[in-house]
Design a protein around this nucleic acid. Structure first.
Lengths: 337, 337
DNA sequence: TTTATTTACGGAAACGGTTGCGTGAATTTG
DNA sequence: CAAATTCACGCAACCGTTTCCGTAAATAAA
């Protein structure tokens, strides 16, 4: 283990432990020459203060938790990168937890975070979360919580999100203007606020262009890839199949591509496709995919920044910040007229 | 903060702190009825033991660090998922650190991990790492280290890797058999062992088919996307340009696609492309990309499993495990004859 | 019945920093 | 020159758990 500690430094320098501690924290109470001696020896012995002793005494761990539904997804990966960047800048450490879209796991993780292990939590809900008691309990323990992307409307906490309603509207409008008469929407959750907003945007766009939303054109997908494939397959095999598909997440767009390939449907001639996505290869797909790209990296940075603001200046109490970053429509071949 | 602690439980129950502590750990020294009383109250008061107090006392944090060069990359994202899965199963927590392919950051992170913050480290080197003193220092502090994918040959530690030499050979052979006379290799590092092995496999395949490796056909790329693009552009604009390209990482293959698009080169007619890659969209690219796919998720799980074996049973000392998981060749249109 | 052992628990010392308080010496102020 | 500050540092309590001992009572062995 790490055996060099304050006591050893103190002994070596004929100083008290407290003096060494203060010197290392550059306290004004310690004379410059003494500080220098301490710094030098600490460096020479490669002293690393035990973070757990410090955390125990100070009730601050300089550690945050990031809880996300999945990681093998460019959006969340970029968000993590943004969070980690800000965190390391601020001298914080980042614990990562993956819920695998399972509320049970999410609740278990949240519960374990009540121990004081982290100073704050950045979280993106899993698709099935309805009951948010586990998150309220976190807050009751005075552990600040910041949502990003998949936020909870029921929990009062800062939220970093994109303009989902507007984006849903734009995506749908884009398909309509490209000539689609029947536009379908693939969604992942009935409870997630972002899903509902995107769907609302979709429906509003339909009405704006004098179409009636049809239940059959809204497909609720889940976490089972094979089942999703079947749902999409049925959608596209129907006689009055849609000529445009708006996917709320990229994995569903990928499935649409596969289904079209199987059914011999041409994109964009037979079916036009648009999707929320941060795929780096969107422009290289066959055909290239029109996307609504979210500023994932910036969202991560923003969420982290808000959290650290709360952690470091407690006197600023902003119970419900809402940061809305714009998503970008990137038009490509999959929606060509 | 979390205010319910052992002392409060003890007071409430008219027991000593030590008894409550033992009861919660289900010690045989405590009678069954007492244990039950303790359990009940702990549950009722939602007691969560302070992990830092415990870590301080036990010199074990039940936390590991994962250090990777980047996260917005399906390979590393899947590896993290594998690691996190095993870790949570074992009751461990996962700290994540991203080096951004910068040795300086890697060294700083390794140095900070000497504090005892983590019980072990899982690491994938960054491309520029040559000096590994910062890793040796970790080991001197008795912090177990496990490499995955980008391993260091100079450091004695368990390594989870793929058959890079063989894969490099197979990839090159595949291009040759598809009819490529001149095969280029795009690599990311001159020091990384996996890069060297892949390149060695490439060169051995060339010799096996009676070709001489040419320096001009081996392109050393870096971290600057634009610079890489230019390098690849020059390669493919040369009069005696290669008819086959073997990319050692997927981001370079993506660049090849973009360059070909700009130059009007057809894949696979003019240039055939194969790449190490875990892209989910490989089959949907235009044209679909032939890949060497690494079992990223399993590599993460394996690395974590080895680490925990070390952490939990110290008496089994296996200084240098080497686990070699096979990569899979997935033939697609980008290498069609 | 006496002695040895087991049972079930309490006391207190760690773990390694942090910090409130105290103090002698040096310096400044009146 | 006396009094008030300031300076530079040490002492010891504290954070919450764990664990080494110790011990009274209960039980078992002799």
């Amino acid at each position: 283990m790490n055996s060099v500690n304050l006591k050893q430094l103190a002994q070596e320098l004929n100083l008290s432990v407290s003096t060494v501690s203060r010197a290392l924290r550059d306290s004004w109470e310690i004379s410059t020459p003494t500080k220098q001696r301490v710094f030098d020896l600490a460096k020479k012995m490669n002293f690393q203060p035990n973070p757990y002793a410090s955390s125990l005494r100070k009730h601050r761990s300089r550690t945050i938790a990031v809880v996300i539904p999945e990681v093998a997804n460019n959006f969340f990966a970029l968000a993590i990168k943004g969070i980690e960047t800000v965190a390391r800048e601020k001298g914080y450490h980042v614990l990562i937890y993956i819920t695998n879209e399972d509320v049970g796991e999410e609740a278990a993780i949240a519960s374990s975070l009540q121990s004081g292990r982290v100073d704050g939590v950045i979280l993106s809900l899993c698709g099935s979360t309805q009951d948010t008691r586990h998150l309220l309990e976190l807050q009751q323990r005075n552990i600040p919580l910041v949502f990003f992307d998949r936020v909870s409307e029921g929990v009062v906490a800062p939220k970093v999100m994109t303009n989902d309603h507007e984006s849903g509207f734009i995506a749908t409008e884009h398909l309509i203007k490209a000539g689609c008469r029947r536009v379908a929407h693939l969604t992942i959750s009935m409870s997630l606020s972002i899903s509902n907003k995107r769907q609302q945007g979709y429906e509003d766009a339909l009405r704006r262009y004098e179409r009636t939303p049809e239940a059959g054109l809204i497909v609720h997908c889940g976490n089972d890839e094979a089942a999703n494939y079947q749902l999409i397959r049925e959608l596209l095999m129907a006689e009055n199949r849609p000529t445009g598909v708006f996917a709320s997440v990229e994995k569903l767009a990928v499935q649409v591509y596969h289904v079209c390939r199987e059914l011999g449907l041409r994109i964009p001639e037979d079916v036009k496709v648009i999707s929320f996505s941060n795929l780096v290869t969107a422009s290289l797909l066959n055909p290239s995919l029109t996307t609504i790209a979210q500023p994932a990296y910036d969202m991560g940075k923003e969420a982290a920044t808000i959290l650290f603001r709360r952690l470091e200046k407690k006197y600023i109490v902003v119970p419900e910040d809402r940061v809305m970053l714009p998503a970008r429509l990137e038009v490509r071949d999959s929606t060509m007229a």
